[in-house]
């Protein structure tokens, strides 16, 4: 028995080494933002589409955090990723030569909603009201552009102090749907989230529109985008980056687009995200 116990680990190690052999599969991932549960199923269809267009084997790998998506991109375990604004900048900073190639139609002018529980008595306005001082507030995920970076930027701009000085409590709910449900339950009085996620929650009937309302929306900023590593042309053939971009721009099947969810994709470049990078540096989330 003892010998068998000792044998198993050795076997395990031998087997673990087996999948290391690398095939020239093109792998992509997407930050977990809307519905994480069926990611594999939904994105498999996107993978099949890309595989057909690009004539290489394409695989989708699900991740459950923004940081995991950035790490996979940096580690060359994925070559293409659907990032948020901030995670895209973080990822491209770490992979020389990588570029943003396409963004959603909606992403050129994305926005964040600030929502408030009914009990606060706050009304929609053109600026964030003074009354929010001392209330409780939740961001979404720490690495989110629409749930953390931009709302924090506009809070600092409006009030001149860090969120934890402005509010009596600051939380990080983890994702947009949770922000909505935590504000709806009054666990936090205020929250900030991705506007498409909010609209989905309301449409799905998960949120009582009587209990929570949008009180302010930020000016627009660029958000989600597809980023690709700089070394793919060398590995998958000359012009591969352009072919990937074209395949993304040509995607018009509503079923595929619903996974993101976007109307369609338009070209994007690294320069489009300079404002996000500067905001990230200003808030100390990105090192210069």
């Amino acid at each position: 028995m003892l010998r068998r116990l000792a044998f198993a680990p050795a076997l395990a190690l031998a087997l673990l080494a087996a999948p290391l052999a690398q095939a020239a599969t093109f792998v992509f991932t997407a930050i977990p933002d809307e519905d994480e549960t069926r990611l594999q199923e939904r994105f498999q269809k996107v993978a099949d589409y890309l595989s057909e267009e690009l004539d290489v084997e394409v695989r989708f790998i699900p991740v459950n955090s923004y940081a995991a998506a950035v790490t996979a991109f940096r580690n060359d375990q994925v070559q293409l990723a659907w990032f948020g604004g901030l995670s895209g900048v973080q990822a491209r900073e770490r992979v020389p030569g990588s570029q943003a190639i396409a963004q959603g139609v909606e992403d050129a002018a994305f926005t964040t909603y600030f929502i408030a529980h009914r009990s606060t008595g706050l009304e929609p306005a053109d600026t964030l009201p003074e009354e929010i001082r001392g209330m409780t507030f939740t961001f979404g995920s720490m690495g989110s552009t629409s749930g953390r970076l931009m709302p924090e930027y506009y809070l600092r701009e409006r009030f001149g102090v860090a969120p934890d000085e402005l509010f009596s409590r600051v939380g990080y709910s983890g994702n947009h749907s949770r922000t909505a449900s935590l504000v709806a339950s009054g666990a936090y009085q205020l929250g900030a989230l991705n506007y498409t996620a909010w609209e989905n929650e309301v449409e799905a009937g998960n949120i009582d529109p009587e209990a929570v309302r949008v009180i302010w929306q930020t000016p627009t900023y660029p958000d989600y985008q597809w980023s690709i590593r700089g070394d793919v042309d060398a590995r998958y053939g000359e012009g591969f980056t352009d072919r990937v971009r074209q395949a993304l721009l040509d995607m018009d099947d509503p079923e595929l687009l619903a996974s993101f969810p976007r109307e369609g994709f338009i070209p994007a470049s690294n320069e489009d995200y300079a404002p996000i990078r500067e905001t990230g540096i200003a808030l100390g989330l990105i090192d210069e």
Partner: peptide, 14 residues
């Protein structure tokens, strides 16, 4: 114990 290592699934290459 013998079956388990076979059932860990693949992943991204190291």
């Amino acid at each position: 114990l013998i079956a388990a290592p076979f059932l860990l699934g693949g992943g991204m290459p190291i």
